[in-house]
């Protein structure tokens, strides 16, 4: 190959792969989403926007949008807040920083599928460690603390823990329609907040100490004031990034749902990626799956474009 045409040889493989693997699928999904295509059938019928109308109206899909929304709107704020909280605490320690950092980062490294199965064990209604521990706390000082009966105007027997203790009736967690989605959220938060923590720790090292000292001299006496006036604004770019990446990751939740709940009970954990898998791959309703894919892509693109917009507006004050 001549040096003059080197760039062609260098760029061509990447360009071809981008076109075939990343761009063509979007076009294909877009096209199929207006059909009732299924694998094995030669043709496909054009059904117009019927698939999209179903997503907007059919109860299965409104439940899908609902559980996805609950998951994203729970996991993102909580895991970002916990990540920030952990980072601030760890950053202000005199010793033990590396130890906590390592521990909180462990779930990020471990295969989520494996850890989901372990959580299922721990949350097993009868032999699981969580309910065993909760039951063991009944009748001891643990109950008197956590049934909140020591608060004024609270009847300990009527609170969640007091009630569960009295009737020995602890949740079935993943098999209970009132708890399943929250349990899946909890595993998502457990897995992801260490990642956010590490990003925030990196963000914190970028804040010059002189700035905090200057703020203190200018009258920001309390730690909260300094956080509000200096640290939080300086972390702006980190926060934009952390929120974006957490959102995109939570939209893609699949492993925990597929391994633990199959979208149930009563479709309360029927998130989008699982819906695509179930409709398209298991039931061979490719057209329907394609339209969920397009809706999914619109959400993700929207989030990323908002992020780009915020970054370009330079969300920081440095």
């Amino acid at each position: 190959m001549g040096n003059r045409s080197a760039h062609l040889w260098f760029v061509a493989p990447a360009v071809i792969l981008m076109l075939v693997i990343l761009i063509a699928p979007i076009v294909i999904a877009g096209g199929l989403s207006f059909t009732d295509y299924s694998l094995g059938n030669d043709g496909a019928r054009w059904v117009g926007t019927k698939n999209y109308e179903k997503i907007a109206s059919h109860s299965t899909y409104t439940k899908m949008l609902r559980s996805t929304a609950i998951y994203v709107l729970t996991v993102v704020p909580v895991s970002v807040a916990l990540g920030l909280g952990a980072a601030l605490l760890i950053n202000s320690l005199r010793f033990g920083r590396d130890l906590y950092k390592t521990i909180f980062f462990l779930p990020v490294m471990a295969a989520l599928l494996a850890m989901a199965i372990v959580w299922e064990f721990a949350l097993h209604p009868t032999i699981g460690m969580v309910n065993d521990t909760l039951a063991a706390g009944c009748g001891t000082f643990v109950q008197s603390v956590f049934d909140w009966g020591w608060l004024p105007f609270v009847n300990g027997a009527e609170t969640w823990y007091g009630h569960a203790c009295a009737n020995n009736d602890f949740p079935l967690w993943l098999r209970d329609r009132d708890y399943a989605i929250w349990t899946i959220c909890f595993i998502g938060i457990w897995q992801g907040f260490g990642f956010n923590m590490v990003l925030y720790l990196a963000g914190l090292t970028g804040i010059p100490r002189e700035l905090l000292q200057a703020a203190e001299m200018d009258g920001a006496r309390s730690a909260w004031e300094r956080f509000r006036l200096v640290t939080w604004p300086m972390l702006g770019p980190t926060t934009v990034f952390v929120v974006t990446i957490s959102s995109i990751r939570s939209f893609q939740v699949f492993d925990t749902v597929e391994a633990l709940t199959f979208g149930g009970p009563s479709k309360t954990t029927y998130v989008m990626m699982y819906a695509i898998y179930e409709k398209a791959i298991k039931q061979n309703l490719m057209g329907m799956g394609a339209s969920i894919t397009i809706v999914f892509l619109v959400f993700v693109l929207f989030i990323t474009l908002v992020q780009r917009y915020l970054v370009e507006r330079k969300v920081h004050y440095a």
């Binding site: 760039h7 760029v11 990447a14 360009v15 981008m18 693997i21 990343l22 761009i23 063509a24 699928p25 979007i26 294909i28 999904a29 199929l32 694998l39 995109i248 893609q252 699949f254 990626m273 695509i276 398209a280 791959i281 490719m286 799956g289 394609a290 894919t293 999914f296 892509l297 993700v300 693109l301 990323t304 474009l305």
Partner: peptide, 28 residues
Amino acid sequence: REFVFGMVLFCLLIPVHAIALPLYIMLA
């Protein structure tokens, strides 16, 4: 060159898991 780089920036927006279905159909 600018065009190719623009394409890279655009493709950064696409999570591969999200387009799994059409990819699966192509492979099938």
